[in-house]
Design a binder for these strands. Sequence first.
RNA 1: GCGGGUGUAGUUCAAUGGUAGAACACGAGCUUCCCAAGCUUGAUACGUGAGUUCGAUUCUCAUCACCCGCUCCA
Length: 635
Amino acid sequence: MSNDPTNQTALMEKIVSLCKRRGFIYQSSEIYGGCGGVWDYGPLGAELKRNLRDAWWTTMTRQREDVLGLDACILMNPSIWKASGHVDTFADLMRECTLTNKRVRADHVDPQDGVVHSYSGAGEKAQWDLIFRAINGEESANDVLKEQAELSARYDELIASGDTWAEQKKVTLENKGYTPQKISILVPPGKPKESADKIALEFYRAQGLKDPVLNYAGAKKVEGSVDFHPETGGALGPARPFNLMLKTYLGPTATEDDITYLRPETAQAIFAQFKNVFDSSRVKVPFGICQIGKAFRNEVTPKNFTFRSREFEQMELEFFIKPDEAVEIICGEVAAWSEGANLEEPQPNWGWQMWHRYWVQERTRFYQNIGLGDVLEYYWQTNEDLAHYARACVDILCEFPFGTEELEGIAARGEFDLSQHQKHSGKNLEVFDEDLKNASAKLTPEQKEAYIQKRLAAEAAKTKGEPMPEADVRAWFERLFKGNYVPHVIEPSAGLDRMALAIIAKAFCEEQKADVNGKVESRTYLRFHPRVAPIKVGVFPLLKNKPELVAKAREVYQMLKKHMNCFYDETAAIGRRYARQDEVGTPFGVTIDFETLGEKGPELEDTVTLRHRDGGEQERVKIADLLPKLLAAIG
RNA sequence: GCGGGUGUAGUUCAAUGGUAGAACACGAGCUUCCCAAGCUUGAUACGUGAGUUCGAUUCUCAUCACCCGCUCCA
């Protein structure tokens, strides 16, 4: 892909257009003028999404022994969102700079000292000169002002007769060449008034004045003020709650007490149901619980097509592991990760680091299997990026026409989530580990103390968050030595809609091609991996006016349809039918012709043309061989 | 939420203060048709709501959506 932004925008527009035209993705509620930040999937989009969803579900749980599925509700007890931190962190009070509209968190403004310069507005220089000349009795200027006054009087009459529209017009007339907007700018102590003037002039120019004349309203010293933007110096507007949670009422009374939220992520349900799954499924740590489902966020700026939507679908795994201390007590050591470490088969001595790397590899393999292998990038979050409870987080990024953006995050989150829910719910979410209990029983008091000291040193060395108090550390180890702990978690969390968009963007391909008449046309096709393609094969009789051809083609279609999504098409020229399927990414086409019927000799009877999408190459295949051949390609 | 841009058939683009047009796509028909062929033929649009006007797709205002920035991390 080229890096020219105009081309990239044009490319994205082509993709959006194709998606709509061929039934992948439509704008939500389009006949009513749309609905911001939500999108619907048409017939082919639904198939594509289902293929991706199934691929994820199969790889993540059905083909594994150690991951279980869950399907939890979107609505939950609102306490869950207090425990997870979403109600607090998703509902910051924000203030906007009145000059630049830059937002800051209301509680993140440091007190500032300085001088505040105020302006009560600004006028257009030319307009002011006019007024000045009118005062001096220059006739031409008078005419202009007289005309304005007459118009103004006429509007007054209209307003008196109840015309609300005239009111608007009068305001526009009076404000012509003048902006009455008041602004205040804070400059640091010692800086001259001119620096404020400069900012003010820039502001009024942005308001539409060509050559503004400032209406200065005076200066004032302030100390310890939190009412100005720390970077721009502009006065901050009122604090407004900025809530990314979608609120709703559970129950018909719709009172304050009934408020709950549409989940902003699917993961919390997994934590909330952790104990139930654990108790009802005869599993042992390490094991995972995965879930696919809708999540909702009141995004400030939904953008880039479906990439950032307000309603979206997530595919999340919470993989629960033992704390490293437990691994060390049981195995005598924790496997250290190094470049090239063997991650193929999970080992009992793996700590969080190995498990985290393991899941990065597993997820990478998944993306390779659906044809995204060569467009992935990785971003390892730095210590500063990480949340205080996170140990590590890798973003799997993908190249989109609008930039390289995140597809999936794989975080090592320690025991934070389950501990939070344990704390807020008052329910014990520990697991009991017999191996750990037995191994701990063999430790000497000195060895136990050594573990505690090692942890205390680690807590003291923390650069983020509060270190755990010694008493808590000792209490934690006391439970651990008895075999009890809250599992730690590795969280690979992927966006299904993003994945679908990535697949479409990656597959999109445009070529210049001359048709049979030599006219150059652009040929658009989607190079989906056969595994994810919404339609696997198109079946075409060469001509539709020959009942034998049609009957044979229907027969082949019915046979294939039992095993895969296929499409029967008998209209238009054969080339056109191929082209239509190319555009929706169908990897194979099967054409039934007169040779199939045995007209060109018995050796070609019951053979068909199998045509491949990407190169357009054709091969002659026996109908009996068709199904196994196609199944092998899409499996 | 703020600033800038856009809004006409499915798509891409025209024109216009009085009736909206093309290309491609789509439907039907003919054709021994293997890469958007040809011929015949058909259906489909001024984002929404107000205002100015005798009359608005066109001018004005509002609203909604999308795109580009501020934002952000599924």
